[in-house]
């Protein structure tokens, strides 16, 4: 097999898969974020620590995300809207999947670009019509991939990346969510 360099350490992932087969408890991760209200509909969220492999873990750097709403919502637009963060999560998750699967299948990538469109009927969140849901009506992701592979192989990469995507699953399947006051 030719050596491909997509920068994904697939061997480490495959090794992890073998190890975790016999140690399901180590596979239990907890991802965390905390947020603070600033003013208006502007908030700042930070992400640094998480739990996994049986221990507390830390990102190399703390990441800070501002969320707000645009001026057409009569807000100050100090950051993207929360629902746009879902598109960011989906795009980056699927792209990571494409790179990993390509590496595993020996496909050299030259460029991977995705554009995302989430259709949203805001009558739901504004309470205009009780029959309109709050969330996305639908989401469309379009990949543009340049790689040493046939169109069919590229389509298979994209299909497989969805099959193994945490965010694709979180968006397409219901999740039990608890929100409480401490």
């Amino acid at each position: 097999m030719t050596t491909v360099a997509n920068g994904v350490n697939v061997q480490a992932l495959l090794d992890a898969r073998e190890v975790l087969k016999g140690a399901p408890e180590a596979a239990q991760f907890v991802w965390r974020a905390s947020s603070k209200w600033q003013n208006g509909v502007h908030s700042t969220s930070t992400v640094k620590e998480f739990y996994g492999l049986g221990a507390e873990q830390t990102h190399r750097n703390e990441a800070v995300f501002d969320a707000d709403h645009p001026e057409v919502f009569a807000a100050e637009d100090n950051g993207i809207t929360p629902i746009e963060y879902l598109l960011v999560g989906l795009a980056s998750c699927l792209t990571a999947g494409v790179a990993s699967v390509a590496q595993n299948r020996g496909i050299q990538l030259r460029s991977v670009e995705a554009t995302l469109e989430g259709k949203h009927d805001i009558r739901g969140i504004l309470g205009v019509d009780a029959d309109v849901r709050n969330g996305f009506t639908d989401i469309k992701v379009t990949f543009n991939i340049d790689a040493d592979a046939s169109k069919q192989d590229i389509e298979a990469l994209v299909a497989q990346s969805q099959k193994r995507s945490a965010v694709f699953d979180a968006l397409t399947n219901p999740t039990d969510v608890t929100v409480e006051v401490a």
């Binding site: 389509e155 298979a156 994209v158 299909a159 969805q162 099959k163 694709f168 397409t172 399947n173």
Partner: peptide, 29 residues
């Protein structure tokens, strides 16, 4: 795919297109 029952309602996955694509691609191969 049937993912959950909530308040007497069946909730189905929104990933139908992808299971179609996976099966179509495998058939083609």
């Amino acid at each position: 795919r049937w993912a959950a029952v909530r308040d007497g309602r069946a909730l189905f996955s929104g990933g139908l297109r992808n299971v179609f694509a996976l099966a179509d691609l495998k058939l083609e191969r």
